[in-house]
Design a protein around this nucleic acid. Structure first.
Lengths: 191, 191
DNA sequence: CCATGATACGGTCCGGTGGTCCACTTATGC
DNA sequence: GCATAAGTGGACCACCGGACCGTATCATGG
């Protein structure tokens, strides 16, 4: 039994409306009711389709996650398989950083949902595990698992947004900081 | 005109009740209403005294902040003034880490309040600035300001709680990870 | 082409939140 | 003892995410 056409139409409408609302930056004025209204459906329709708001955000992020994950698993080196450990690490950091910048509002919605929602979902688990693997390869003597979590935390959308707004750090500086966090030997310091 | 005695009594009752409730770990079952009820007063009494819940949390943390800040500003070295830059950095990290462990629930309440409430309050600004100073002294070649924010982020109570619950990292390991984050040259790696 | 059962629908309701308002009570200074 | 200013608390507000359920719509077998 395939999905009924009206159900499919509504699902698409909800996704499009939510996408647009999240893009509009009003981060916390995006509510279940506002999404439902923008999509022209009732709240219950949104919820039955996606379970809860977390499910909706997941559905929005999922395709983008797939794209990046495929590039990581089977794309061109050094982001994909192959290449030197250090280059693989830094290429991956750049890709994650770009991913966060491109999906700021969605990731922030994810973070706000539950206490551990940011870390404890399939996509993040994959990012963290992959990050730990690449850290292990590039820096065999450190606690790669902890460092992976720490770097991933530095990649939180709310943290990056804060750094840009209040201490007025620009994006390249934050990017450089994250690289240095993951691999301090590369740049200068302790050369 | 000094504070009326009944007002003072209520303020103390609210502080004590809130303290107890936060200690009880039910983190998000702590609401304005539950605090007011536990203190035996109305919600308005809580709010007029402290402005909002953030003000209440601030009032609870404030004395502890003062204690640590005094130790930092005028205590024994290396936490207080004096001593080598590296020792000063690591002593400070230990003190901050202990502070977070001792005040987990209060700090989590602070984090949950607003998007930037964790970073953008007087106490945190002081911790971060001091951290940047000590990083600058110990590691002159890095971007100390960014690193200070990154390390302070790794010290978030929610992050530490998460690491202990899900990847099951124990406290000493997290502590060691934070030290390594701030000063990777000290331990091993790139020696 | 229609009847019928399954599916999707949305308005309403629920318990909860943080915060405001205002008629009332209470402590204080004269 | 009294006037007055300060403090009080419960009713109230707007809002949230989510559950419920009678109704409308769709897909399908006859």
């Amino acid at each position: 039994m395939s999905e009924r056409v009206d159900a499919a139409r509504n699902r698409a409408a909800v996704l499009a409306a939510a996408e647009a609302l999240f893009q509009r930056e009003d981060l916390d004025h995006v509510s279940l009711a506002s999404i439902a209204e923008a999509a022209g459906v009732g709240k219950a329709t949104v919820l039955r389709r996606f379970g809860d708001l977390l499910g909706l955000v997941d559905a929005l992020i999922a395709p983008r996650v797939v794209v990046l994950r495929d590039r990581v698993r089977s794309g061109e080196p050094p982001l994909g398989p192959g290449g030197g450990a250090t280059e693989r690490l830094h290429a991956y950091l750049d890709a994650l950083f770009d991913f966060v910048l491109d999906n700021r509002t969605l990731i922030r919605a994810l973070e706000q949902y539950g206490p551990y929602a940011y870390y404890d979902n399939p996509a993040s688990r994959f990012w963290i595990e992959e990050l730990a693997d690449r850290l292990r390869a590039a820096r065999p003597t450190v606690d790669a698992e902890y460092l992976a979590h720490a770097v991933f935390t530095a990649l939180r959308a709310d943290v990056i947004d804060y750094l840009r707004q209040f201490p007025h750090m620009d994006t390249p500086r934050i990017r450089a900081g994250i690289h240095a966090l993951a691999d301090p030997a590369r740049e200068s310091d302790t050369t």
